[in-house]
Design a protein around this nucleic acid. Sequence first.
RNA 1: AGGACCAUAGCUCAGUUGGUUAGAGCGCUACCUUGACAUGGUAGAGGUCCCCGGUUCAAAUCCGGGUGGUCCUACCA
Length: 922
Amino acid sequence: MEKTYQPSAIETHWYETWESNGYFAPSGEGEPYCIMIPPPNVTGSLHMGHGFQESIMDALIRYHRMKGRNTLWQVGTDHAGIATQMVVERLLDADGKSRHDLGREKFIEKVWEWKEESGGNITRQLRRLGASPDWSRERFTMDEGLSKAVQEAFVRLHDDGLIYRGKRLVNWDPKLHTAISDLEVISEEKKGHLWHFRYPLADGSGHLTVATTRPETMLGDTAVAVHPDDERYQHLIGKNIKLPLTDREIPVIADDYVEMEFGTGCVKITPAHDFNDYEMGQRHQLPMINIFNDDAEINTNAPEKYQGMDRFVARKQVVADLEELGLLEKIDDHNLKVPYGDRSGVVIEPYLTNQWYVKTQPLADEAIKSVEQGDINFVPKQYENMYFSWMRDIQDWCISRQLWWGHRIPAWYDDAGNVYVGRSEQDVREKYSLAAELTLKQDDDVLDTWFSSGLWTFGTLGWPEQNDFLKTFHPSSVLVTGFDIIFFWVARMIMLTLYFKKEVPFHTVYVHGLVRDSHGQKMSKSKGNVLDPIDLIDGIDLETLVEKRTSGMQVPQLKTKIEKMTRKDFPEGIAAYGTDALRYTYYSLASTGRDINFDVGRIEGFRNFCNKLWNASNYVLMNTENEDCGQDGSQNFQLSLADRWIISRLQEAEKAVSEGMNTYRLDLASQALYDFIWKDYCDWYLELTKPVLWDDNASADIKKGTRRTLIRVLETILRLAHPMMPYITEEIWQRVKPLAAAEGDSIMLAPYPVADESKIDTQACADIEWVKGFIIGVRNIRGEMNIAPSKQLSVMLKNGEENDKRCSSEYSHFLKKLAQLDEVRWLNEGEKEPLSATALVGDLEILVPMAGLIDKDAEIARLKKESEKLEKETSRLQGKLGNAKFVDNAPAEVVEKEKTKLADAQNALGKIAEQIQKISEI
RNA sequence: AGGACCAUAGCUCAGUUGGUUAGAGCGCUACCUUGACAUGGUAGAGGUCCCCGGUUCAAAUCCGGGUGGUCCUACCA
């Protein structure tokens, strides 16, 4: 093995080996286990959130694969309608062209070209993470198979009466010229104004005052509403308003939607441009006057003066004109929520258009039931409430988008505007018995990307065709996803899957948190705090990082700020930590669904952990290669105390890690493994093998037992760790396996360790605790007394019980080596005890003679510190045990435990007091 | 406005059905290049478990109220 751990030297090599050998594909044997990847955006690149999510999935997949399950990790990408179309349009724009210059067909060709070029980016990055999906089954939502599923789903839903077309208010993006769903609208609090306008009554008897945040929409007002109980306006109900700036008259109506206390209590009603007004318009059969075009400019329904004006220009103009007419009463400051398109960033306009909808209520009812009944479980559980509350208040889903990139809606129109839905134009003609000469034109719109993603779990497996894969792997086992996508995707997947497959898409939804920066800030390009997982793996120097974070920044101040922050946070750039360390960091932070603040300090710690494992393995190999470690199956070996103890601890570690994996507590699993490897195996066990292996007098059998245990425990550790740190474990395992009599071509196909309760050796554990207590006692004296670690000491023992006598004699070789002692002996009967520093192990007193070694005051100070601690402890326990209520009410074993603690503490305290006395007397 | 989640060491986080001397990593202090490892070892320091009540023999843990933070949902034009 290389002397030092260098992740870059091993990672790509092993990945290529695994992939080219087809190890990622399902084995075809065992109980199926399946995870469907939440398809990343094909235009995208890997961010920390992906890294986190994919690492979790890979750990679960590798774990279950090693446990012998027939494991499928279905991989693929999403065509991301709007995002992808925008990227390609931007490219065209650089050449001064628009998609309309190219025309639909040519444009789509361009998109495909671009996808071929850049679409591999994210899958390449996935590979760098060590992800082990079945690449041979990679799918793309625009592929033929998925497209067929989408078409089939649309036609069936339509024929079943669950898809309809209607003219309604939608969220319109005036920049992208498409409808978007509620979920794609981000509302942000903005400072705005509340304009108060006087609307004159038509009969000349005066006016009323309305308040609005959107003056320009008054051009489309078709009523003014007041509350039916509002005494101020009773007399106005039923009268007409002469709508200023127009030649229209509109009625004053009564509706209890109006809040009397807000504004003036009079609301202008614009049914074509506001969701609430739309509903009120429906209730009162008000006309709807659309005053905008697709660009949100004033159209010809408005007075000529305003036609062609942008909405914000029109706003100013309307206000100015009303002011000139003396109708502007006042302008108040007002905070309001403004809807923005999450892709385009422009203000979204409620806009009347023809769109396709899915009737969601019947689907939602089933979807709710499946979670209520426990057919689907959320982890953590509280996300079920979020899911229910959304599902119970669900709106029909607008699924048409006015884009070119996506699944084109399988609907055709004749010249009279009749709609026919079918699998193709031919199919439509047959299905509806249409004359051959009737001209049909396909709908121009495409489907919402989430419509296709909703079919992901079964569409990727070949549906609507029935095949073995679909039968074997659907429903999938677990969906790993972020909570931000529960509505977008999870909910819709559940609805559509239940409808088409009559079964759930997955049994468990494991919801993880968001990855934030170390200060808890959301990572975003504009904040300049994004970390690229690949940079954490490969490292990046400061200048490149600054350049990367600030490139394309338009605002110079922002650029300066980001640069400053980056230089402060990463003065040395970022070191190359390797994939295994990055993955381990993710796991360590993956607790109960809460957000994680990613701190580079953590990853450094885990890089060190990898290094530790590497060096420990190096030690083990040095001592086992070309040696008899029982790899031939021979039984002539003997286990030392340390061997029996580490084997015992290994069982507990195996149990803890598996429990963590099974309950989606990867943080607990990784912690248990970390502690076992570093604290038990490296800190203690490896040290305890040295007195055996380096002892010329030790028997061949016991040396063999130690070597055998060294190598076999290491081999097990590697398998235990493999799902979390795939590369380093494979690299080492290949060297270790022959010595441990393990078989197989790759660790990823080796069996996962299972705890064997019968190997838990409580006696060995108790004895090791004794040995550790002894050693730590001596080390403590050394540390606090400033005795050089290299200085060999002679210690004497007194006051011990039988067990202390046994342990001190059986394990003296361990004590001598690890505590650097050249002699350990019991005080003889009647022998005068030399002045000593003392350590206690239960009743046993360890005496370290002070002559020439120890500063008297230092020893007194040390003992006093110890005795203060014990005094606090005793008084606490005495208080507790002196309380009759505690003694009477607490379970006997709890009381007993406290009593023992008190006795031990008092005993120790007495001995220390005695010692302080002795030393002080000199 | 309603709801969810969170608040534990300087920082990032664990802490199970109430009973631990409240833990880890990083950082900090002292000592140490001893034959796997200085990406290391040994020994330490460091906590009003956000605040106030309550339940209980016993609360970081359960309940109520507050404060602060994050997020979601719905919004009054």
